[in-house]
Structures are given as structure tokens and as C-alpha cells.
Amino acid sequence: MTYVIAQPCVDLKDKACVEECPVDCIYEGPRKMYINPDECVDCGACEPVCPVEAIFYEDALPDEWSGYPTAEREVFAATGAAGGASGAEPLARDHPIVEGEPVKTG
């Protein structure tokens, strides 16, 4: 199990979580931030600083966002991104679940 960034982050990438992550496992996508499940150490430092309450321990994720753990795993399986987010370019694409979300404005 790991932490997951869910739908409330889409189009509202605050990035406070990035500053708190001691292992540099939070990567930026075009519309949302992603936690690399292979790098996350389950410390929970990111969860309380998220201003939109988008970060959940996988077992505590609300049912309406149940596809987000799969989205995070698939994004990193497809990109191979690993080794720390600070040295990585932003992800080129979001997962189709994120791409399918209505765009938030304002």
C-alpha cells in the first residue's frame, strides 16, 4: 500500500506535498501530481499539508476515486520515471482517468 493523490488535485497542483516529501517521490503531470508507488515510503508527510485534501492512504481512499491508485501505478509503469522527482522533467501526459476529468477553472 502507498499514498495516492486523487481527483481533488486535478487542475489545482498546489505542490505543498512536494516540499514535504522526504524521498522525492511526487512527480508533476500536466493536470495533477502523482506519487510513485515504488518510491513512496508511506511516511504520510504529504497528506496533512495538501490544501485540497487530495492525498489518501490507499486503503482510506473514497470509493468515488477508486481508480486513482491504478492510474498512479500505470503512469509510472508506462514512463519508467524513477529516481527522484526533482531531477525529472514533468510527465508528458496524464493518465486517461485524469484526462477524462472535467477541467476546473478559476
Score class of each variant (00 low, 15 high):
residue 23 V to F: 09
residue 58 E to D: 09
residue 74 E to D: 13
residue 26 I to V: 15
residue 73 R to G: 09
residue 65 W to S: 09
residue 26 I to A: 06
residue 61 L to G: 02
residue 29 G to P: 04
residue 44 G to E: 15
residue 27 Y to T: 03
residue 39 E to R: 11
residue 36 N to Y: 05
residue 37 P to E: 11
residue 58 E to T: 04
residue 31 R to M: 11
residue 37 P to K: 05
residue 84 G to S: 13
residue 59 D to T: 14
residue 59 D to Y: 12
residue 30 P to R: 10
residue 60 A to E: 15
residue 54 A to C: 09
residue 76 F to Y: 07
residue 83 G to W: 10
residue 29 G to S: 04
residue 60 A to K: 15
residue 42 D to N: 14
residue 74 E to Y: 11
residue 25 C to N: 06
residue 37 P to V: 09
residue 44 G to H: 11
residue 84 G to H: 09
residue 86 S to A: 13
residue 81 A to V: 10
residue 55 I to M: 11
residue 25 C to I: 00
residue 53 E to P: 00
residue 54 A to K: 05
residue 71 A to T: 15
residue 68 Y to R: 01
residue 73 R to Y: 14
residue 50 C to R: 08
residue 41 V to G: 00
residue 54 A to V: 03
residue 74 E to K: 07
residue 87 G to H: 14
residue 76 F to A: 12
residue 76 F to K: 07
residue 39 E to W: 05
residue 50 C to W: 01
residue 83 G to Q: 00
residue 28 E to T: 14
residue 56 F to L: 03
residue 66 S to K: 06
residue 81 A to E: 04
residue 79 T to V: 08
residue 50 C to K: 06
residue 37 P to G: 12
residue 35 I to G: 07
residue 35 I to Y: 03
residue 24 D to Q: 08
residue 64 E to C: 11
residue 63 D to E: 15
residue 29 G to C: 05
residue 73 R to D: 13
residue 85 A to F: 12
residue 62 P to M: 12
residue 71 A to E: 02
residue 33 M to G: 13
residue 56 F to M: 12
residue 43 C to I: 14
residue 27 Y to V: 03
residue 50 C to S: 09
residue 26 I to L: 13
residue 45 A to F: 14
residue 31 R to C: 08
residue 69 P to Q: 13
residue 34 Y to H: 07
residue 75 V to R: 03
residue 34 Y to N: 01
residue 80 G to P: 01
residue 37 P to D: 02
residue 67 G to S: 06
residue 40 C to V: 06
residue 41 V to M: 07
residue 36 N to C: 12
residue 81 A to Y: 00
residue 77 A to R: 13
residue 61 L to P: 01
residue 61 L to C: 07
residue 75 V to P: 00
residue 64 E to N: 04
residue 84 G to V: 02
residue 60 A to Y: 14
residue 82 A to W: 10
residue 33 M to S: 09
residue 26 I to Q: 00
residue 47 E to M: 13
residue 48 P to K: 10
residue 51 P to F: 09
residue 81 A to W: 05
residue 75 V to H: 01
residue 46 C to V: 14
